[in-house]
Each structure stands twice: as structure tokens, then as C-alpha cells.
Nucleic acid binder design. Structure first.
Lengths: 334, 334
DNA sequence: CAATTAAACCGAAACGATTCAATCATGGCT
DNA sequence: AGCCATGATTGAATCGTTTCGGTTTAATTG
């Protein structure tokens, strides 16, 4: 049923090698034969077999993208960006979701090696680093996403979390807030730790007081729960900064339920600027991360590395996040 | 660098065919040789080459999933479900996102054919149906997701939208509401049309009055805008049912801004039960669709079809959506 | 003990493309 | 006319597996 390059060759009355040239280096084949081949392909409805192609040529033109949570809008944007650039360069993107499960992560890595991907984009979990080492041993280029590579032998595209934390506090200070609640996730997550460092740094500079609150998971429900502690705390905070939009949305819900007005009673800022933040009951001010760009650039970098081999220079690119101001913050009035 | 089955064979001092048997039919090889091969594989760090395997065996063990919008939480859940069952059955899932763009859809279809996928899961756009016909011509099984197949030659896994529309209105009527605003998307979308049919059917049964409102796109912003019309309309509606959660969240925001109380002034229901609905400022009552199950079942069906060939019976499975009651609805008080 | 049988193993051929050294045409130049 | 350079085309070898008919080995039977 499926036609091969041989069928095309015989129908067009040329050699198989010529058909292959037509497919890969069209400039090498004369106008007349080109037409013959074209119509033979159309007649037979021929589509080349990627497996055969990869096997012989040695390159799969496939890159893998392994994300920890496909449910997270941040990563779907990354995937869109990576997918689009992959397509534009005639690469196939193999998108895998590990659901934050090291077992699944390992299994996907195995499959990706079987597929002989020529490059991998990954946000590695702690355990996943072993798998990445395996890839290195096989000389498969790897680029970290949203996590900076320590080694200069490794590319990465990440965000400046320190800067993000810092700019949120700076902005609140500029509005006149001097006592801020900072709701962070586990410090074991690199991003959380950096954001906190930025927060504290800015607090010192701007001379504002930070009240720390902690959340175990960065989901909406956790924000909802921690809000009670904020309301009961003795210190009179006038602004709340959350390490993530989901948490901020949870906090927002709790505040509204308790009859508080946003932004009058409390200014509120989130982080990530996921799509829903703009359409929350009170549109959320947030620190936006250019997820699409992140994915697109990462894909472009790994493609460059694949195609330029040894002479490729590894880079650690760090994006600056951007403050997006909406209705959940305003200048403090006494 | 990359080792082949031959290297394994020579190191284990067996024939290549034996190694292949070890990989594919381990029961055929004796205990002693099994061990030799195992350690050779471990020593050489051998991982089989999927392309060679597919080329020779004729089956790629890969299924494609082509979704119109990876950004939509509904589809990421579908993808998780399909991905998990694919993994469990040792299939690879190739996830493609067309961004509702017919051009991208067509391009992805082409790539999927090149990869010689053995089955496709798709939520076809209107234009996409042509591409699907192409797949059929090549005898590649196709299963529709979230859209019922008209032909009995085709499997599908979809939702009963008529039932969903109906049950929302029925529920509102049971709370005492007799005048309901129904905010729908374009009737050209099959799902919207069916839901509306269900709404009207139930309205007649329950003897309640429906006020129709229309939205061009089913995004939050559109809901926000249409809410003004609802507030200004002369008829005294006491409940609002939206064709999708995003729209409902937009409506919710507009109502709150206008000082309305939910659920006291208005009861509000959405559709889809996306994750954010549970953590909206007023947790949203919604019609839940089991997206994960949908994806998982669709994947299982296509795998069955691939493996059982001709003797496979096509099925059109229709799931019943489920009402999830939260804080945005309550019994009407006068 | 010879004959029979089953279990393991062997290894050449094939899958559908790409590669590359070799051949063929064509036209320009002395 | 003869020679060369250039551009097109050819086709056999190859990539890493699976497949499958054939061979070896060991155990069982009469």
C-alpha cells in the first residue's frame, strides 16, 4: 500500500538516487526530470518514510521536550514556542510530560534515546539530572529550560528570579507600601529561593518590612489557606506578594470572602502572569515570564547546536521578567 | 558511539537473531544466554534504535494526537490521559498542537504520515476533515475526540452536550429559577449547538424562560463584555448559564464589579469544570467533562484497533457530563 | 542404541531511504 | 577533431533491526 522511493523512480523512469536528490537537494536535478518526478510522486501519493530516512542518514531531526507538568499554563506556552520553531526548521518535536514523577521522567528519557533524538529540552527534576548525564554520555545536546545550567558545557534558557522578586517589592515600595507579606513556596525549589533573595534584597534597599509566609505546594488551595494566617497576623501588612499566580488567586478568594477590598485594603501581586490572572475577579498585577519566547529560543539554540556541532558555543541565557500592572494594586492611601 | 545489536551479539558470543529474540520474545531464549546478553547490553549501554525497528517490522508503535489548542486545560487533560495509556501499552504518543490554524493542522498531518503513525486521535476542525480523509485512504485508523463520528466506519469518543445543557437548566429550575440567561458561543461549533438544544428542551419541560445571549469567542473577555447586556436587559433573569467556564469567569468578574452578589443576586453556572473554576473568587458550579478519561479511552480504543485489525468493531462512545455544585448557585429566595 | 522430537540458536535477506564513486552528456576551447 | 570541465544521472552498498527457514544440541522414546 505504502509506496517507496523505488516505485517513484520506476514510474518517473529515473534512478532511485535521483529521486533522493530531488527530495534533498532539488537544485542538483534538471528541470525536466524534476517535473517527471513531481508528477510521479503526485500520482502515487508518495510520502517518504521518516524511519528509513533517519536510519540511513543518522539524524532523526527530532528534538525532545520533557516538561514536569503539562497542566501548568507556563509549560504549555513553552511547548507552543518550542513546537513552532521546531516546525519552522523542519524538526519534529516530541513532547513528553512527566507529571513530576521521576519514574515517568526516566521512562520518557529511555524512549527519547530509542528514538535517537538529536537534542533535548528539559526542566530537570532533582532526580532527572542522572538521566541527563546519560544523555551527555551519548553526546546528545541538552538545554535546560527555566533552570540555569551550572556548567558552561551546557546551554540553558532561564528567568532571572532574583530580579523578579526584587522588582515586585520595589514597585510596591514606590506605591507607598512599607509592610509587605511575602508568600513563598518551598525553598528547595530553586526559583522560590531566588525570588526570596530578590525580595529581601529589595526590602533592605527600600527600607520596607517583609513578613514571610510559607506554602507547601504552589496551588490555589494553599493560598486560600495561608490567607487566614495573614489576616490574623499582628503586623499590619498592606500588600501581599505571592510566589505564583495560583497562590495569589487563592489568597484573593479568601480575602474577598472576608469582606476585604482589593486593592484598597490590600495590594496583591502574583508571579507568572498566567492567562487567568488577567480575567480574575480582580485582574491581577503579576510578574510576567515570556514562556513562549523561552521555548522558542531554547528550541532555536538546540537546533543550532545540533547543526553546528563542535564549533557551537554554549550559552546561559537569562530573561528578565516583566511587571504587568493591573487592578489588584494601587497607591497606598492613608 | 552508538552500539548496535551486532556489537551486543559479538560481545555476548551469540547470533544477532538471538539478541533480537531476547528483546522481543524473551521466552524463546535459554536462561544462560539470556544472562550473557543482559550483561553485554549493560556493558555496552545498548539501547535499540527505534527507527531501524520500525522500518523492518513495519509498525511504528506510535500514535498521533492532534489537538486544536494546547492552551485549553480541557485538551491538556485529554493529552495526559492519552499519553499515560500510550505509555502503559508501550506506544509513543506524538502530541501536536494546531493552534486552530488549518495550515498548521495540515502540516502536522503530513509529518504524522511521514512518521508512519499507526493511529491518530484528533479533534478535527472543519477543514481538517480533508486531511482525515487522506489518512483513511492510507488505512490509518482515526478516532475522533470530543466530536461524534457520523460514519459507523469510524470510532469516536465524545460528550453528550445535549444532556449537559439540559441538566444545567433542570438543576436551576429545581432551585426555583424561572428566568435564565443562556450565554452561548457560535452555533457553528457543534458543541454549542447541541448544548443549546439541550437548554431549550429542558426549558420547555421545566417551563422556564430562556434569554439568549451570544458571544463570538469563548474567552473570558467576551464573557466580561456580554455581562453588561445581561444587566441592562429588561427581563428579570435570576440565573446565568454560560457555555464555557472561561466565559462564566468573565461574567462573574463583571457582575462583582457592578456590586452584584453571587449566588444571591444571580446564580451562575459554567461548563467544562476547568481547574480554575474551583478556585475562582466564587467557586463556580459547572458541568464537568471527564477529559482525562476521554483521552485515555480514545487511546485504548485506537490501540485495540491497531492490534486487532479487521476484526475490530468501531464504536461511538458518548460520555455523560456531570454537574458539579459549588458556591455560585443556591436556591432562589424571594 | 538408533530414531524421533523439541528447544535454542544461527545468519542471510529484507525494510526504504541516503551516499558516493563512477558513468554519461553537453558544450566550450584549442 | 580532440580534450576537458561541468553538470546530471546511475546503482550498489549501507544504516540497525526483524524475520524465518535451516541447523545444532539435548532429551525422550521404543
Amino acid at each position: 500500500m505504502a509506496n517507496s522511493i523505488r516505485d517513484v523512480a520506476s514510474r518517473a523512469q529515473v534512478a532511485v538516487g535521483t529521486v533522493s536528490n530531488f527530495l534533498n537537494r532539488p537544485d542538483r536535478v534538471a528541470e525536466a526530470t524534476r517535473k517527471k518526478i513531481e508528477s510521479a510522486i503526485a500520482d502515487l501519493n508518495f510520502v517518504p518514510n521518516a524511519s528509513a530516512r533517519h536510519l540511513r542518514s543518522g539524524s532523526s531531526r527530532t528534538i525532545g521536550l520533557l516538561v514536569p507538568d503539562i497542566t501548568n499554563p507556563f509549560f504549555t506556552e513553552v511547548a507552543r514556542g518550542a513546537g513552532d520553531t521546531a516546525s519552522e526548521n523542519d524538526y519534529t518535536l516530541l513532547l513528553c510530560n512527566s507529571d513530576e514523577d521521576p519514574k515517568k521522567e526516566e521512562r520518557h528519557l529511555k524512549v527519547l534515546i530509542e528514538q535517537r533524538i538529536c537534542g533535548l529540552l528539559i526542566t530537570p527534576s532533582f532526580e532527572g539530572l542522572a538521566g541527563v548525564a546519560e544523555l551527555n554520555r551519548r553526546n546528545i545536546p541538552t538545554t535546560f529550560i527555566d533552570r540555569k545550567a551550572e556548567s558552561l558545557e551546557q546551554s540553558s534558557v532561564s528567568m532571572d528570579d532574583f530580579y523578579g522578586g526584587k522588582s515586585a517589592v520595589k514597585y510596591l515600595a514606590s506605591l507607598g507600601h512599607t509592610s509587605i507579606a511575602w508568600v513563598n513556596g518551598p525553598l528547595s525549589i530553586a526559583q522560590c529561593a531566588s525570588r526570596e533573595a530578590g525580595v529581601m534584597d529589595s526590602a533592605k534597599e527600600q527600607n520596607v518590612k517583609i513578613n514571610k509566609f510559607q506554602v507547601n505546594q504552589m496551588r490555589s488551595q494553599n493560598g486560600y489557606e495561608v490567607a487566614k494566617n495573614i489576616l490574623e497576623s499582628t503586623s499590619q501588612v498592606t500588600a501581599i506578594f505571592c510566589a505564583n499566580d495560583l497562590v495569589a488567586l487563592g489568597v484573593l478568594r479568601a480575602l474577598l470572602e472576608n469582606g476585604k477590598k482589593i486593592p484598597t485594603d490590600y495590594a496583591l501581586i502574583g508571579y507568572d502572569d498566567i492567562g487567568f490572572s488577567a480575567s480574575a475577579s480582580i485582574p491581577l498585577t503579576s510578574i510576567a515570564q515570556p514562556a513562549y519566547k523561552l521555548g522558542a529560543l531554547a528550541a532555536q539554540m538546540i537546533i543550532n547546536e545540533v547543526e553546528n556541532g563542535k564549533k557551537f558555543k554554549h550559552e546561559q541565557i537569562v530573561f528578565k521578567p516583566e511587571l504587568v500592572i493591573r487592578a489588584s494594586t494601587q497607591a497606598l492611601r492613608k
